[in-house]
């Protein structure tokens, strides 16, 4: 996670990029990582999420933990847009290596306040090279 100072309505706002590299459910790092990102957004910080490596599995649709008895937090990703986290990047190469396609992921959306609250897809698919630039931008 890297940050940058900017100014926003008098308060201090930093740019946070959360780099998610772990699969959900086998460990709960994904769940608690999502919680810290949402809390940061609730504090009006500028939050972006990037999913690479096994992190892309976090956004797989149709997750249902009822048969393993753990908490199903995958619905919480739907709250990202509500918390104004509108930059959610998924690396295409990581999907392909895992036999997944764009259509395998949850159809997350956000309402664009600059465009009459039109509902728009939240996930931005990026290449490895693009993700490298995104990580660099947050320096």
């Amino acid at each position: 996670m890297v940050t940058e100072d900017t100014n926003h309505e008098g308060g201090q706002v930093k740019k946070f990029l959360y780099l998610n590299r772990r699969a959900p459910h086998g460990t709960n790092y994904a769940q608690e990582g999502l919680e810290v990102a949402l809390i940061g957004a609730a504090f009006d910080q500028d939050v972006a999420m990037a999913y690479t490596d096994d992190g892309v599995f976090q956004l797989k649709k149709d997750q249902d933990t009822s048969d393993i008895g753990t908490k199903n937090f995958s619905a919480t990703y739907g709250a990202l847009g509500d918390y104004d986290v509108t930059r959610v990047y998924v690396e295409l190469e990581s999907l392909a290596r895992r036999g997944l396609t764009k259509e395998d992921l949850m159809p997350l959306v956000y309402e664009d306040e600059d465009d009459d609250w039109e509902e728009k897809p939240l996930i931005r698919f990026v290449s490895e090279a693009e993700l490298r630039d995104i990580i660099e931008e947050h320096e």
């Binding site: 459910h25 086998g26 460990t27 709960n28 790092y29 393993i68 008895g69 753990t70």
Partner: peptide, 12 residues
């Protein structure tokens, strides 16, 4: 408990 699924799997 909670960090890893191991305890859940063992219980199941």
């Amino acid at each position: 408990p909670y960090t890893h699924q191991a305890s859940d799997s063992a219980y199941r």
